[in-house]
Amino acid sequence: MSETTIPNVSPPTLYIEGPAFWAPELPGWDIACAAFRDEGGLTDPPAKRPSPQILAPAERRRAPDTVALALEVASAAVTASGRNAKDLPCVFASAHGDLGINDYMCGTLATDPSVLSPIKFHNSVHNAAVGYWTIGTGCMASSNSLSAFETSFAAGLLEAATQCAADQQAILLVGYDVPAVGPLKSVITSAGLMAAAFVVSPVRTERTVASLDWALEPGPSQTPALHSSAANKVHTDSIADALPVFEELARASGTPLRLPLAPTMSLRLLIHPLA
């Protein structure tokens, strides 16, 4: 019996729409894009946190930083893509969820569990941000809340790309994380607010900004170097593996990126800007 040969098929080219970015030093994609090209600098003083207009004023005040960050870039990405959030599946990626609330929960449970805040408990779950998003937009499409420690953005991008290619449907990718506080700072390096998002589409549209070729690549992995002074100065958090992707979207160098997924596996990306 002859052996069956399995063809080596490359994943299909996908397309990026509506890049969105927020960090205190770079509060918005236009500012970040210019800074990543070394055509602008960091804002001074830094912004405190975004104020997503998708939430009602009272909800904006109560929402934790993770929700504010995620909804700010998600809204910006969907608006720039020209799509309807109600119909758009989404992947939200965060290494740890809300570390401030986790610290509060652990401390309160250890000292006086009876005073635990129901609102903070409600916001402590990892899918809180995507829950606020789907409720606020009325989205009934599929949603994922994904965590993969400090490779969470790469894992989220792989998940979004796989879903997009398999279902032939555009999908929103959102990555976000916040600083560690309390005893968690001794084991988690996250030191700042940062969020990034874009829409991945199976076809090119009038809103497409870049094509995306992607593949899994075995072998030792290493985080790509950052080239702009702005990206290197951002107070990084656990979603910082998004920085080389957004820097490449801005700089359009044509250099392949290899985002670590594991010690011996990377997500290889080649981003081509499209006019």
Results as ranks from 00 to 15, higher is better:
5 T>V: 06
6 I>K: 10
7 P>D: 12
9 V>W: 04
10 S>K: 13
11 P>T: 06
13 T>K: 05
14 L>M: 12
14 L>V: 13
15 Y>N: 02
16 I>Y: 06
17 E>Y: 09
18 G>N: 05
19 P>Y: 01
19 P>C: 09
20 A>W: 01
24 P>V: 13
25 E>Q: 11
28 G>A: 11
33 C>P: 00
33 C>Q: 11
34 A>G: 00
36 F>W: 07
37 R>L: 13
37 R>H: 01
38 D>S: 12
43 T>P: 01
47 A>G: 05
52 P>S: 02
53 Q>T: 10
55 L>G: 03
57 P>F: 10
57 P>E: 10
59 E>T: 15
60 R>L: 12
61 R>L: 05
62 R>V: 05
62 R>G: 08
63 A>W: 07
63 A>K: 05
64 P>Y: 05
64 P>A: 10
67 V>D: 04
68 A>M: 13
69 L>E: 04
69 L>T: 07
71 L>Q: 08
71 L>F: 06
71 L>S: 04
72 E>W: 02
73 V>E: 03
75 S>A: 14
75 S>W: 04
76 A>C: 11
78 V>E: 08
79 T>V: 10
79 T>I: 14
79 T>C: 09
80 A>C: 11
81 S>Q: 00
82 G>M: 14
83 R>F: 14
84 N>I: 05
86 K>L: 15
86 K>Y: 02
87 D>H: 12
87 D>V: 10
88 L>M: 06
88 L>P: 00
93 A>D: 07
93 A>Y: 07
93 A>R: 00
96 H>I: 03
96 H>G: 15
100 G>I: 00
101 I>H: 04
101 I>T: 15
102 N>Y: 10
105 M>E: 00
106 C>F: 07
108 T>C: 11
108 T>R: 13
108 T>Y: 11
111 T>G: 06
111 T>Q: 15
112 D>V: 01
112 D>T: 04
114 S>F: 11
114 S>Y: 11
115 V>F: 06
117 S>W: 01
118 P>C: 12
119 I>T: 13
120 K>L: 06
120 K>D: 08
122 H>N: 02
122 H>V: 05
123 N>R: 00
124 S>V: 06
126 H>V: 06
126 H>D: 04
126 H>S: 07
129 A>R: 15
131 G>H: 05
132 Y>P: 04
133 W>V: 01
134 T>M: 08
134 T>W: 00
135 I>S: 15
135 I>M: 08
138 G>D: 05
139 C>Q: 03
140 M>S: 13
141 A>E: 15
142 S>I: 00
143 S>P: 12
144 N>A: 09
144 N>M: 00
144 N>P: 02
145 S>P: 08
145 S>Q: 15
150 E>K: 14
